[in-house]
Design a protein around this nucleic acid. Structure first.
Lengths: 254, 254
DNA sequence: AGGACCGTGCCGTGAGGTGGTACGCTGTGC
DNA sequence: GCACAGCGTACCACCTCACGGCACGGTCCT
């Protein structure tokens, strides 16, 4: 179904570059203009895109994708269980809280509560983060089976900043440390000025279904509040696990 | 492009009924099983769905749709402008705050900050609400051009509860009241136990681009806090308008 | 053992997707 | 004022490939 794949590519490209017209899309996707045109008409007909406000010849995505995407990873009412706990965590920390789920070799942001502090980390829902260079990713890696880690280490680890851990041995050591203390840290390993403290949400020992993090500008992250956040985020992750009905399994080492 | 339309229908159906298998989908969509099967394989290939955790033969949507949908109505950085203001509003009211955008003859929820109160309104992102039976919808209607209202009144207004306004004249009177005081109310007109106080975000006089509401169980909505919320939500909506660069136009009657 | 239902694979037919091409329009620079 | 580049749209002959009926093997009740 080549046309479906092409049309979905067009949809994604519209989402990233909106508002955008036929010609620019065709160039960006390296597709014939007429094919892109047909895809756009079809997507419009299906209600996934619409002409941009004012102009009739450039396109933007509608909220249809949002309605579909909001169901992602809501398989077990994860979001409903998590949000109240996250809210408590946000109030206690006064910092931005992220909820991610593992997907393929990444973790994806599915819920977010923001700090009221003017200096904040802002990331779009649906954004994917690398496993080895984010606190949530490391929390998932440390609690998951070894096969995920092995798969990740099969290729060279991409470097994002000077602090990114790219050495397999150092990563293994870091993950052991995460298992020991119960929470994972990120000190500017993905973006130099972003730090995080994360703990995995387990549905059973060795089976992380999500991860929870406190995200904070590096300028506000000290050794003291790091430990405070670590304890708080561990307790919150455990509570979410308990709400999901996996009470006994929610706490492991640490 | 029939196959694209069919495949998108399959995707939406997977989202609403996940986890779900081929046969049940085919029945629900009244499509041949083989066509549904092909659509599922294609969607999997494109990364929009994946087999459910554990079982290999039922499908769930991935976060791809979330990544696409999160861009919806982010045309002008609306969300970035709105979230900090919403957060302030949430702290002041201690109630759930919704941000919606108009889309066709509905308003769609695109951002949400929840109260920490155990009794809360919970609605999925991407959910659509009727214009005539929600505070946000009425705020948009009251501030928009008359053609939208006329289009809405061309058909009979659906009734959701005993409080829903279905009489065109009563709706016009209600909208005049909204324009006069600056904010819109909803007293169980959509769900009997849900009340809201909303104000439209204007990009120019007569051009609502979004709307902001305080949502609250009817049991907590009194005449006093209603007025307090009204003033707060008006101020917040005006501030968002100002952040969008339409400072002068942000306030209208009120 | 039987049957209902599941997901999957196969295949002949012909609908309809493909993509090169051409057209009308608008905005721009000379 | 004119030529031109770039836009979005439309047309159409070719022939790919989506369609959907059907059959198969597996699994779970009865």
């Amino acid at each position: 179904m080549r046309n479906v794949l092409n049309t979905l590519r067009v949809l994604e490209e519209v989402a990233t570059r909106q508002p955008i017209g036929v010609g620019e899309l065709a160039r960006a996707l390296d597709m014939p203009k007429s094919s892109v045109q047909r895809a756009l008409v079809t997507l419009d007909e299906a209600g996934w895109i619409r002409p941009a406000a004012g102009e009739l010849r450039r396109w933007v995505v509608t909220t249809k994708a949002l309605a579909v995407g909001a169901r992602a990873s809501g398989e077990l009412g994860l979001r409903d269980a998590a949000v109240p706990v996250m809210e408590g965590l946000r109030q206690r920390t006064e910092e931005t809280i992220h909820l991610v789920v593992p997907e393929q070799d990444r973790v994806v942001l599915i819920e977010r509560l923001e700090t009221s502090n003017p200096l904040r980390i802002s990331m779009a829902l649906g954004h994917a983060l690398p496993l080895h260079a984010s606190a949530n990713g490391k929390a998932v890696l440390a609690n998951g089976g070894p096969e995920l880690l092995d798969r990740l280490l099969a290729d060279e680890l991409p470097r994002y900043t000077e602090h990114t851990i790219v050495d397999p041995d150092r990563l293994r050591a870091e993950l052991a440390l995460v298992r020991e203390r119960g929470y994972a840290l990120n000190h500017g390993e993905w973006r130099t000025d972003v730090g995080s403290v994360a703990a995995a949400v387990l549905e059973a020992p060795g089976r992380p279904v999500a991860s929870l993090s406190v995200n904070i500008p590096m300028s506000r992250l000290t050794r003291e509040n790091e430990a405070v956040f670590g304890v708080a985020v561990c307790r919150a992750a455990g509570e979410i696990g308990a709400r999901l009905g996996y009470g006994g399994a929610a706490r492991d080492a640490g």
